[in-house]
Simulated assay, not measured.
Amino acid sequence: MLDRRYQTLIALAKYHSFTKTAQKLYITQPAVSQQIASLEEELDFALVIRDHGKIHLTPAGEKLAQFATQIEFEGTKVIDSLRNNVEHLKMGCTLSLSSTILPKFVQQLSTRTNIVTTKINNTQHILQNIRDGKVDFGLIEGNFNKKEFDAFLLQKEHFIGVGHNKYRCDSIENLFNQPLLLREKGSGSREIFENWLATQNYNINDFKNTIEIASPSAIIEYLKQNDGISFMYESLVVNELKTEQLKKLDLTGFHVEHPINLVFLKNSYFKNIYQEIVESV
């Protein structure tokens, strides 16, 4: 759908090399230079900075490439939907939400489309998947750049500390000697906990023993069988709290509620569809 020059700009933004861009697009390097120069002349502003053999896009070039990328994959989605009369929704979801919110979304989406694809990963991976057009939207509890993404609020979740029933403490300082189980970097739940620690003038390194585990369910199982603490959404451990397999840590000053959002690219053509989905779930 896009002018070939914009497709070249998208590739150049990705590879930062005239040579590699030419190889990927199966055209000559002079052709890449000519197309970018033609686009700059037409727009009357610079898109590329050449610095001692290295290529950098100007801020305007980066923004234009990002906008062109969005038009490219959203345009393709619209045409495919019209041509095949089949709506194909690709959804991303963070690991922390995959066992709580995701099932009802899959159930609801299956009533309106023949194909539902779901990718499960941490917050940063899902956001990158949205940028790359690998998913249309994501169910995310972590933070995101509101200049780049738009969102609809799904609900708010209580974020709590949990551990073995034997723990009797009212301050985070008293837990520094306990094993801390936390998600990998890029996880929304880890970011929420780290941000709260910072408000108390602490950080992860204040804990003497930290264990990174990518799976929330694996963290829960570990805590049920071993000493340790972790911080996660209360909805993940409702049964464990009821059966007293785990205990909610009553920490002074720790009252965290975080929004769960359906996140998508800013100015998306499909914004109304995403709103309909949120309202129907």
Rank of each mutant, 00 (worst) to 15 (best):
H88I: 08
L153H: 12
P103G: 00
N195H: 11
M91A: 04
F105S: 01
H125S: 15
P103N: 01
V116D: 08
F137R: 08
E141Q: 15
Q128P: 00
G188Q: 04
F137D: 07
I101Y: 02
D80Q: 15
F193Y: 14
H125C: 13
V135Q: 02
N165F: 03
Q107M: 08
E87S: 06
I192G: 07
N177G: 12
R190W: 08
K156D: 15
Q155H: 11
S110E: 04
Q124Y: 13
F176I: 13
H88W: 03
K185Q: 10
E194W: 01
N85T: 02
I160K: 13
F137E: 03
E157I: 06
G92F: 07
I160V: 15
L95I: 10
V162Y: 04
F105E: 00
E148P: 00
L181Q: 06
E184C: 05
P103I: 05
K146P: 02
G75I: 04
L180C: 05
S99M: 07
N122H: 14
Y167S: 05
V78Y: 04
W196D: 13
H125A: 12
N165L: 10
L153V: 07
V106I: 05
N195L: 09
N165C: 01
H88V: 09
Q155C: 10
N129F: 13
R83A: 11
N122P: 06
E184A: 11
S81M: 06
P179Q: 12
T118Y: 07
S110F: 01
Q155T: 12
A151N: 12
L109N: 01
G188I: 00
H88R: 08
F144K: 06
E141S: 15
F159K: 09
T117N: 15
E173G: 05
I120G: 10
F105C: 00
Q107C: 03
D150K: 08
E141H: 14
N165D: 06
L82N: 04
I120T: 15
E74V: 04
E148V: 11
Q124L: 15
S98R: 07
G186M: 00
E157A: 11
F73G: 03
G133M: 02
E87R: 09
K146W: 00
P103Q: 02
N121W: 13
H125W: 11
G186K: 07
L97Q: 08
N177T: 12
V106L: 03
L182R: 14
A198E: 13
N121C: 09
T118M: 05
R183T: 05
N195T: 11
K134A: 04
L127N: 10
I71P: 00
M91T: 02
L181A: 07
S99P: 00
Q128D: 06
L82H: 00
E184P: 02
D136F: 05
L153P: 06
K147F: 09
G161I: 06
I79C: 04
R112S: 11
I71L: 12
T199W: 13
T199Q: 15
N165Y: 03
N85V: 03
I115Y: 15
K185H: 10
P103S: 03
K104M: 00
E184Q: 09
F193G: 09
E87F: 06
A151C: 11
I160F: 12
K147N: 14
I172D: 08
K77H: 02
G75S: 14
Q128Y: 05
E148A: 07
R168V: 05
G188Y: 05
R112N: 05
F193N: 07
R131C: 07
N114T: 01
D150C: 02
S187K: 08
D80P: 01
R168K: 13
N177P: 06
L109P: 00
